[in-house]
């Protein structure tokens, strides 16, 4: 067997002649297959593989193991198409639940030339990977700028009280629609998933005044409640009192009627007696009446017919002070 001697550094290696003549072919093959193997690539479950052949978009590969012809024939991008991306406007999360407000972004003019402080989150995802990759630059910035513009445009259509209270949902929807319209106009291949207004509040400088309005509302309710309390306290009492008086009066009435009826009966029976024996009854009546009256009255007996003789006076009253 023929050898060729190759000197590497200090040592001498004998290489078989055969290997040298064959040598180039395996090396070329290895390099060739190595080059081919660079075309194997993985597409994650949340991605697609967007393949360009000689720079031209040719196909979309689905998740799994895929193959594209190696550089420079084909190249591939794997954008995350199911991922929902998030942009914060007016604030930035710092992690661990804290955030920093960015007034420059969040302060905006309302339709009635007031200023509100509005913070918003935009969620979006890739609708068309090829448009997203090949038709626009800086997609994130594009969404952010368009979202800011939309929010301000929409808030500008509403007045401050709407923005702060009832109109929030409407603003949210209108902003979403406008943002989508703008992005479609750019052919950005982006789908707006959601627009959420986080916090819409009056600017810090006038927050006190706004809070005072709220407490004034409370004050109003409190005063009304107090007055109602007064009413609720007094009216039943008064009603009860009235009821009591009515009852008393009724009782009095009944008693009076009964007594009167009794009197009538008595009088009638007496009348009957009287008719039977006029003189006796008269006398008896006189005596009975006297019997009833006299014990309570100061009595002096003056004999009848005498010429005012003081000595004949019989004082039946107990002497004052002597008893």
């Amino acid at each position: 067997m023929a050898y060729r001697r190759i000197i590497v550094g200090d040592s001498e290696i004998k290489v078989p002649e055969k290997l040298l003549t064959l040598g180039l072919i395996p090396i070329v093959l290895i390099v060739f297959f190595g080059w081919l193997s660079t075309g194997i690539y993985k597409v994650g479950p949340d991605e697609v593989g967007v393949v360009r052949t000689f720079g031209e978009f040719t196909r979309v590969d689905q998740p799994g193991l895929n193959y594209h012809f190696p550089y420079p024939i084909e190249s591939v991008d794997t954008p995350k198409v199911t991922e929902v991306k998030r942009i914060e406007i007016g604030f930035r999360s710092l992690g661990n639940g804290q955030y920093r407000a960015i007034n420059q972004e969040s302060l905006m003019l309302t339709g009635d030339e007031n200023i509100v402080d509005a913070e918003m989150i935009v969620q979006y995802k890739i609708k068309s990977p090829e448009a997203y990759l090949f038709d626009i630059v800086k997609p994130r910035l594009t969404v952010r700028e368009a979202a800011e513009a939309s929010l301000r445009t929409v808030v500008g259509r509403h007045n401050i009280d709407e923005s702060l209270t009832s109109g929030k949902l409407k603003i949210q929807e209108e902003t979403k629609a406008l943002l989508q319209e703008i992005l479609d106009k750019y052919g950005a291949g982006i789908q707006v998933v959601a627009v959420q207004l986080q916090d819409v509040s009056p600017p810090e400088q006038v927050l006190g005044a706004f809070k005072d309005v709220a407490s004034a509302k409370e004050d109003k309710n409190r005063m009304i409640n107090q007055a109602e309390g007064y009413r609720n306290d007094l009216i039943p009492k008064a009603r009860g009192e009235a009821e009591a008086r009515i009852r008393n009066a009724e009782g009095f009435k009944q008693a009076r009627t009964k007594r009167a009826e009794g009197d009538v009966a008595k009088f009638k029976s007496m009348l009957k007696e009287y008719r039977k024996a006029k003189n006796i009854t008269k006398k008896r009546l006189y005596l009975e009446t006297m019997e009833e009256i006299l014990p309570g009255v100061e009595k002096v007996i003056v004999p009848d017919g005498d010429n005012g003789n003081v000595l004949n006076l019989l004082n039946l009253n107990p002497t004052k002070g002597k008893k």
């Binding site: 007031n114 401050i160 005044a209 004034a216 004050d219 005063m223 007055a227």
Partner: peptide
């Protein structure tokens, strides 16, 4: 201006409350 406007509102509420009471 915003502050003045709110103050007006607050006053209105308070006097309304008083009136009602």
């Amino acid at each position: 201006r915003m502050e003045a406007e709110r103050m007006r509102q607050a006053n209105k509420f308070r006097s309304e409350g008083e009136e009602e009471a």
